[in-house]
C-alpha cells in the first residue's frame, strides 16, 4: 500500500509538468499580422508587354478587326442624338429600323403586326459620323446586350405613353405614332397610330427593348402590361443586319410631336 501511494505522488507531478509543457508548446503557433503595406500600380507604357500573352491575343484581335472594319454601308449626313427637341435623325433611324426588321419575325411567330416603336434617348450611345458604316458602328451606338420586346398596350395605355413622352421632354426614338399637342406642349390633344385615330377596343403592339419593357426609364406602362413577346433579337445584331441590307443610310426627319 505504501509503495503505491508514493508512486501516485510522483506521477501527479509528472502529469502537471507535461500538461504545462503541452500548453506552452501550442502558445507560439498563432500567426499575427503585424504590418500591412498597400499601394496602387498604374499599368501604362513604361511596362513592357508579355510577349506570350501578346501572341496569344493576336489571332483573336485580327479576326475581330477584320469583321468589325469591313464596310457595310455609307452614311451621307452625321446622325446625332443631341440635335432635335422632340425627335432626332438618329432616334428616328433607331425606331424605324427596329420596326422594319422586327415586324417580319413578329408576324411569322405571332401572326400579328407591330403598330409603333418607342425606345429611349439614353440608349443611343454614340453618334454616327458621316462616312463609311461598319459593324463597329453598331457596337458604338449599341454596346449593350438589349433585345427587342413587343409589348401589348390598350388605347388608354397608349394615351399614358403619349403623356409620358410630352412630360419627359426628351427626343426618345419614336416611329409609327404621332402626338398632337397645344402651345403648352404638355396636353395631349390627339394621337395617330400609323395615321389612324386610336380605337378604344384595340390592342396596340409596341416594339421596345427588354430594358424598357421591365420598367427602365420609368416607362411603367410597359412594365405593367401583361402582354409581352420576347423576340430574342439583340438590337445591335438588328442594326448590323440592317446595315448589310442597305447601301446608304437615310436621314429621317419625320416629326413625331406636332404643335397645333
Amino acid at each position: 500500500m505504501v509503495n503505491v501511494k508514493k508512486k501516485r505522488v510522483n506521477t501527479s507531478y509528472f502529469v502537471i509538468l507535461l500538461t504545462f509543457l503541452t500548453l506552452l508548446s501550442c502558445k507560439t503557433h498563432k500567426n499575427n499580422i503585424y504590418e500591412v503595406d498597400g499601394k496602387r500600380i498604374n499599368i501604362n507604357e513604361q511596362y513592357i508587354s508579355d510577349s506570350n500573352i501578346e501572341n496569344f491575343i493576336a489571332p483573336y484581335r485580327k479576326h475581330i478587326n477584320n469583321d468589325l472594319d469591313s464596310i457595310l454601308a455609307f452614311n451621307p449626313v452625321t446622325q446625332e442624338k443631341s440635335k432635335g427637341k422632340w425627335q432626332t435623325n438618329i432616334g428616328n433611324l433607331f425606331a424605324e429600323t427596329t420596326i422594319a426588321l422586327s415586324n417580319p419575325i413578329f408576324k411569322k411567330r405571332e401572326n400579328k403586326e407591330i403598330d409603333f416603336c418607342l425606345l429611349n434617348h439614353g440608349g443611343i450611345r454614340s453618334i454616327i459620323p458621316e462616312g463609311n458604316i461598319t459593324s463597329r458602328t453598331a457596337f458604338e451606338i449599341m454596346p449593350f446586350e438589349n433585345s427587342v420586346m413587343i409589348v401589348g398596350l390598350s388605347a388608354d395605355e397608349v394615351r399614358t405613353l403619349a403623356a409620358y413622352f410630352l412630360k419627359e421632354k426628351k427626343p426618345h426614338p419614336l416611329a409609327g405614332l404621332t402626338i398632337y399637342t397645344d402651345s403648352s406642349e404638355t396636353n395631349v390633344i390627339d394621337i395617330l397610330v400609323n395615321n389612324k385615330h386610336i380605337e378604344d377596343s384595340k390592342t396596340y403592339y409596341v416594339a421596345t427593348t427588354d430594358y424598357l419593357a421591365n420598367g427602365g426609364d420609368n416607362m411603367n406602362f410597359f412594365r405593367d402590361s401583361k402582354i409581352k413577346f420576347d423576340l430574342d433579337y439583340k438590337l445591335r445584331n438588328l442594326f448590323i443586319d440592317y446595315f448589310k441590307k442597305i447601301d446608304t443610310l437615310p436621314n429621317i426627319t419625320t416629326e413625331r410631336v406636332i404643335i397645333k
Binding site: T28, Y34, D37, I41, I43
Partner: peptide, 11 residues
C-alpha cells in the same frame, strides 16, 4: 491599375 497589399505575419 493593379492593387498590391503585402501582409507581414509573425508567430
Amino acid at each position: 491599375n493593379l492593387g498590391r497589399i503585402d501582409f507581414y505575419l509573425s508567430d
